[in-house]
Nucleic acid binder design. Structure first.
Lengths: 179, 179
DNA sequence: AGATGCAATGCAACCCGTTGCATATCAATC
DNA sequence: GATTGATATGCAACGGGTTGCATTGCATCT
C-alpha cells in the first residue's frame, strides 16, 4: 500500500504530527491521495513499530501535547525502494458513469441535475487549483527539482478536473438535445 | 456500495451468468467500475438472497452448467432508488502522483521511465476506446436514449485517458528540460 | 499421453478504508 | 456558567476488495 509512503513523502518534506498530517491530506497531498485522521494515526503507529518513523512528544502551552514524527534512515531506505518499484495504474471507479450508463432505467432529468451538480463541484475544485498555481508557481519555466515535481502534480490535478468539467458539459449538452 | 448496482445495470441490459458478467467487467463496464470474478460471485449470491436478482440454472453441452441471472421487480425498484440518490465524487487515488511528489528522494530517471511506461499504457487504452467509438457510434449526433448514454460514458473514458496522456507528456518534457 | 487453456463456480483469509465513538485541553462566544 | 470549536490522539466494529487456492469438464496443442 501507498499510504505509508505518501505519509513518508510528506514527512520527508517537513516533520509533523498526525493531526498536522491529517490537515495536509485535506489540502495538497489529499488532492491525489485521500486519508482520514483515523487511518493516519493507525498507519503512523504501524510505521513507528516498523522503525520507519520516530516520534518525539512535544509539550505545547495552551494546547494538548503532540507527537512529532520524523522519517528514520530505515524509512528513507524503504521510500527509495518503493519509489524504484513499478506502479500499476489503479482501475477507475466512477459511480456517476455507472448511473449514466443506467440512466434510462430511472429518472433522466434527476441524472441531468446530478451531472450539473458534479460539474459545479469540479469547477470549484479547478478554481482552487488555479489559485494555488498562480500563487505558488508564478514562473513555471524556471522551476527545478522538488518544486518542479510539486508543480507537475498540481498540473495533473488541473488537467483531470478540467477534463471532468468538459465531460460533464458534453453530457449536459447531449441530454438537452435528447429531450 | 455501487457494485450491486453496476451489476444490475449490466443485467438489465442483458441477462447473464457470473462468468459472463466478469468478462463484461473486463471490457465495457470495467472501464469505469472494476470487479473481479470473486467479487461478482459473492455479490450475486448476496443479491439473490435479497431477492434483487433471480437465478436460473442452464445446462450446456460441452460446458459446465451456468446460472443465468435476471433482475427482479424488487431489483428494479432498488435500481431506481439508487439512481435517484445523489452520488459523492470519489476522492482521487493516484500512486504515480505520490511518487512524482517524492521523486527527488529517489531516482528521478527511474521515475521518468515509469511515467513513459504509463503514457504508453494510457495511449493504448485510448486507442482501444477510439476503435470502439468509431465502430459502435459512427454517427453520434443521431444517438438517443440508452445508446446516447453509453456513448457519453465512452466519451468520459476517452477524455480521461487523453487527459492522462497529455499530463504524462507534460511531465516527460519538464523532466527532460530539468536534466 | 500429457499439458495447457477456457468455461464455470466458489471458499477463506487478510488487509484496508469507513464510521462511530471516546477523551482531553484550552479559547472564544453566548 | 455553558456551549461550541479547534487542537490532539486513539479504539472498535464493520464491510468491501484483494489474493490465493480449489474443483470440474471439455477442447486443443505438443
Amino acid at each position: 500500500m501507498a499510504l505509508e509512503h505518501a505519509i513518508m513523502v510528506s514527512l520527508a518534506e517537513r516533520a509533523g504530527s498526525g493531526y498536522e498530517l491529517a490537515r495536509r491530506f485535506e489540502r495538497s497531498i489529499g488532492f491525489f491521495w485521500a486519508a482520514t485522521h483515523q487511518q493516519i494515526y493507525r498507519v503512523l503507529k504501524r510505521m513507528d513499530d516498523a522503525g520507519w518513523v520516530q516520534a518525539e512528544t512535544v509539550a505545547q502551552d495552551g494546547r494538548p501535547d503532540k507527537k512529532v514524527y520524523t522519517v528514520s534512515a530505515l524509512g528513507h531506505d524503504e521510500l527509495r525502494r518503493w519509489l524504484a518499484e513499478p506502479t500499476e495504474p489503479a482501475p477507475m471507479r466512477d459511480e456517476l458513469a455507472v448511473k449514466l450508463r443506467g440512466a434510462s432505467l430511472g429518472d433522466v432529468q434527476a441524472l441531468y441535475d446530478e451531472v450539473a451538480r458534479h460539474r459545479d463541484l469540479a469547477a470549484t475544485r479547478l478554481d482552487g487549483y488555479r489559485v494555488i498555481e498562480k500563487r505558488d508557481f508564478p514562473d513555471p519555466a524556471r522551476l527545478t527539482g522538488r518544486n518542479l515535481h510539486h508543480y507537475l502534480v498540481l498540473r495533473g490535478g488541473i488537467r483531470v478536473e478540467q477534463g471532468l468539467v468538459d465531460w460533464y458539459e458534453e453530457i449536459l449538452r447531449a441530454l438537452e438535445a435528447d429531450r
